[in-house]
Design a protein around this nucleic acid. Sequence first.
RNA 1: GCGGCAAUAGUCUAGCGGUAGGACACGGGCUUCCCAAGCCUGUAACCCGGGUUCGAAUCCCGGUUGCCGCACCA
Length: 478
Amino acid sequence: MAVKDDKVEELARRRGFLWQAYEIYGGTAGFYDYGPLGARLKRQLEAEWRLFYSLEGFFEIESPTIAPVSVFKASGHLSCFSDLAVVCNKCDSFFRVDEELTAGGKCPECGGELVAAGELNLMFQTRIGVPKGRDGTRRGEGYLRPETAQGMFVNFQRLLRFNRSKLPFGVIQLGKAYRNEISPRQSLIRLREFTMAEVEVFVDPEAKNSHPNFDNVRDRRIWINPAEGEECETSVEDAVRNGTIANEYLGYHIAKVKEFLERIGIPSDRLRFRQHRKDEMAHYARDCWDAEFMSRRYGWMEIVGIADRGDYDLSAHAMHSKVDMGVPTQTRSKIIPHVIEPSYGLDRIIYALLESAFTEEQVGKETRKVLRFVPELAPVKAAVFPLLNRTELKQKAEEVFQSLKRELVYVDYDDSGSIGRRYRRQDEIGTPYCVTIDYQTLEDDTVTIRNRDTMAQQRVRIADLPAVILADIRKLHV
RNA sequence: GCGGCAAUAGUCUAGCGGUAGGACACGGGCUUCCCAAGCCUGUAACCCGGGUUCGAAUCCCGGUUGCCGCACCA
């Protein structure tokens, strides 16, 4: 609030998309509220995502957000998150303990002495049930999940049986995850509580190079930034064949991620796929590509991670739980499937959507601000106005409003101020269609539909209104 | 976490020790036959807690939040 805000974020706050959480108590960093329009935008994004992966034949589950410590001992999150931290007693610089940096060592910044600063744990810890046993021992140690993925791995046996013991199959999960970030910043980019949408594809490791639908994506063009070599545009097929992308499954899902992001309105010229270098890869990953969005405000930012997790998770849970995660095969002994995981950060995608939808243009002396959402995601699908503030027009407009609402649900009515002002209000929240009732309507039951992007109007019969608007919305779904 | 800077209506801001002002937005009314027009009118703010002072939005201290840099981002 202090510094002049970015226009997109100012609009998002003013019009009810995004608010700092717990504002009346001064706010809490890393937490955001979605206001009425933001929540609607997000719900619709989630619906599109479900639809997209359900069409792949994947099934959705919903696991708890709290898990006992044993899950994270197995997954590696506990040890990878619980490193000790040291702090310099001279300049207060803060470091994660490693071979070079230990308590008693020298600060690389100023040469001061490093002292232990406690545990650096990025997971929120909690207690499940009564925190102490009769003998005084602590128990019920639990954590808020830092990713939704573990819920799918720990249920692998159930899921496999559900799929009648066949590979491959895909499972999706959408929900909150929590990371106690040291310094959350940049609005929706680094939150402490955020929404993930994760896909786990379980595949026979020997089948990773023969995805049944690879033909559908082989010619897709993608911008890649590989760990070694130059950033370039390439086809999915070439990147897989020359080994830049490790296998067909990974290539296929990179292509699907791009398809989804384009569908929801992220322009492809602001998208690239960047490969992680060995030293930045997560503890579970063999290969990892980030879908990155070019933000005008923050530069390249990760919005989706597509990882080849190998058999890391299933093997780890098999070992810790002593439950067999193997899958019987016809010709070989049991195998542990590999996992290909596209993991979407939905809040970051909401930010990317807001930024890429936002445009300003000069109309006469005024600046017209428009959020050019794809109609599927627009939080208000249509608005109905009486041309003038006259009883007979208002009555008719109210009728049209009520009937349109039954079809489209998310419809606004507005009779305040001039017609131009009302168009602008709707432009600012991205409403794709504005329906205006004028005197001709009273004579022949036709209205004008005004298009958000072109500002052009067409006259249609009231009876045809829902069909005309729905047809336009569905056109985008081919 | 560290350092620097900042915090005034819904939004953007003026004021910088002595009655808190504007613009836009928003509500009500008038006007208006299609793109933020005009007129009248109304609502609305000094981040929180301490201190200094006769008096604090203003100065000092602490906290919170935000921005920038460093670190962190499994």
